[in-house]
């Protein structure tokens, strides 16, 4: 039986109700705080743009997100290539590498990286034992640690749209290029890669938008020394009761992400992002 249009809306109703109660209503509350706390006006928004600390956190967040996006895209492209065009064994291996991190909580993964990267972590211990380095390398509790942890988390999200674009390439187009005498590297760079641009743009936006709101990974691997925007909001609201500023930062972040998503819709159909 096929439901009438009104019937289909009925099926969506629980989700719409949940989104409304759990996201829209609280967000409107946050918006109100940003204009009313500690006193009515747009003072908190002025503070966001004038406060050097807030500004440096925003700039750091943008820098980390850009680096993470580029790193995730490069890694995801290689993984997606093996996943889509590899042999049977390679495909299974790639699938395993994509899915297993998906099933492990973000908290567990952040602590896992800490165990690898910290001063007394596996990497530094081994390198010191092997006599390659004298003192431990600063791999965690700084921006590098945050970037490594976030990139690792976000790679699978970049793999899906890229793999989807790779799958939709007509095999005969690649054969045609070969038949015309093109070398493998020429086919890759002038045919294969350009035909995946849509997937790359979609992946870049997804990773970037996700990265902007990261909280757990930077909090654990940054060790308080490379605070990102989400952590700043947390600090403002829970540690230095400055609800108005925290709320204003949240609102700006949400608007920025909404603008990016609107941009994404122009480049790529939502269905492509899922693969």
């Amino acid at each position: 039986m096929i439901a009438k249009p009104s019937g289909k809306f009925l099926l969506l109703a629980p989700l719409l109700l949940f989104l409304g109660l759990a996201y829209a209503v609280p967000f409107l509350g946050v918006v109100r705080w940003s204009f009313t706390l500690p006193e009515p006006g747009i003072g908190q928004y002025k503070a966001v743009f004038s406060d050097p600390l807030v500004r440096s956190v925003f700039l750091r967040t943008l820098r980390i997100c850009l680096i993470v996006t580029v790193a995730s895209l490069l890694a995801a492209y290689a993984i997606a290539y093996v996943w889509v065009r590899g042999t049977r064994t390679q495909r299974m291996l790639a699938e395993f590498c994509i899915l297993v991190p998906f099933w492990i909580s973000v908290l567990t993964r952040a602590f896992g990286w800490l165990a690898l990267l910290s001063n007394r972590g596996l990497i530094n211990t081994w390198l010191q034992a092997a006599g390659i380095i004298g003192s431990p390398l600063a791999l965690a509790r700084n921006e590098l640690g945050v970037i490594i942890g976030m990139t690792h988390f976000l790679i699978p999200f970049a793999v899906f749209p890229i793999a989807s674009a790779m799958r939709s390439i007509d095999e005969r187009v690649l054969l045609a290029a070969r038949g015309m005498g093109a070398s493998r590297s020429r086919i890759f760079w002038t045919v294969f890669v350009p035909l995946t641009y849509g997937g790359l743009i979609g992946a870049a936006l997804i990773v970037f938008v996700f990265a902007l709101g990261f909280f757990v990974t930077p909090a654990i691997l940054g060790g308080g020394r490379s605070v990102m925007v989400a952590e700043l909001v947390y600090l403002r609201i829970f540690q230095s009761p400055d609800w108005g500023l925290g709320a204003a930062i949240s609102v700006i972040l949400v608007l920025f992400i909404a603008a990016l998503l609107a941009l994404m819709r122009r480049f790529i159909k939502p269905a492509h992002l899922i693969g």
Partner: peptide
């Protein structure tokens, strides 16, 4: 180095 015309043409869409 042969010319080839494929079923469905296989033109470069980009």
């Amino acid at each position: 180095s042969y010319g080839m015309v494929f079923q469905g043409y296989a033109l470069f869409p980009h």
